[in-house]
Write a protein that binds this DNA or RNA. Structure first.
Lengths: 129, 129
DNA sequence: CCTTAATTGATAATTATTCTCATTTTTTCA
DNA sequence: TGAAAAAATGAGAATAATTATCAATTAAGG
């Protein structure tokens, strides 16, 4: 990944914002500095920077929503390889709500934990430890 | 919410599937039972059922991705009211990865926790406890 | 400098989802 | 029962977010 003025601008704009902007919001800000910048360039750079670990993309599951008839509290794991979604028991993070409410003063109405990685099967297939 | 054959079918199809299907996948299955069923009906019913708490929709943030220049481990809270995104310190769920890896045998490469509810400001505005 | 590789801007395409609206189905209750 | 009101449907248009395409521009390195 080599230097470009646009990538520089994307990164700086992101850093100058305290909140966690969407691409749309960033685009508006960016156009003030550089009215010619293309939306595609913004998305490209955000993805590249996230890929490189310079920034982070916050999005639970990638594209489409998944539905679950199991409504008792539990979490999910999505396999990077086969894209299957698995249940994770809720007791991996027990008092997470009360802890967070106390710490923040926010009223928590719900939460979701999504893990990703390699499921058992794909792990074996790839021979990865 | 009153009875309809299509809603019945949507719910049954979801329950008969062990995995956590996407709408697209459900649609394919549903069309075998009812070739006339509309995609809009499927989405409508999934949302209604989720709204009513009969099923659960798994999707971290609703629509668009948010980006964060802060790459050290932390979580996020999105306010249902003003849609702002806040940081939550990672220590609300400390050994969540090791615990999950031990419990599942999966290789965890990352995870995201997204809370939602009312932020401090909106909580006061709405006078909600 | 010159060549090669990376990046850009403009825009088309795609994907997932929601909206619209005329028609059909369900519910209610006289 | 069965007529009126309310809810739900199907078909397809619309939207929103994101990705792909591709010719033109810019960066990097010998």
């Amino acid at each position: 990944m080599n230097y470009s003025r646009q990538r520089e601008q994307v990164l700086r704009t992101l850093k100058e914002n305290v909140v966690h902007p969407t691409a749309e919001y960033l685009y508006e800000i960016l156009r003030n500095k550089n009215p010619k910048i293309s939306l595609a360039t913004l998305y490209r750079n955000l993805n590249q920077l996230a890929e490189a670990g310079v920034i982070k993309k916050i999005d639970g599951l990638e594209s489409s929503a998944h539905f679950d008839h199991n409504t008792h509290e539990h979490y999910h794991f999505i396999c990077d390889e086969c894209k299957k979604v698995f249940d994770i028991s809720a007791n991996v993070a027990p008092d997470i709500i009360s802890k967070t409410e106390t710490e923040t003063g926010f009223k928590i109405k719900g939460h979701d934990i999504v893990f990703h990685g390699l499921c058992h099967e794909c792990r074996e297939k790839k021979g990865e430890q």
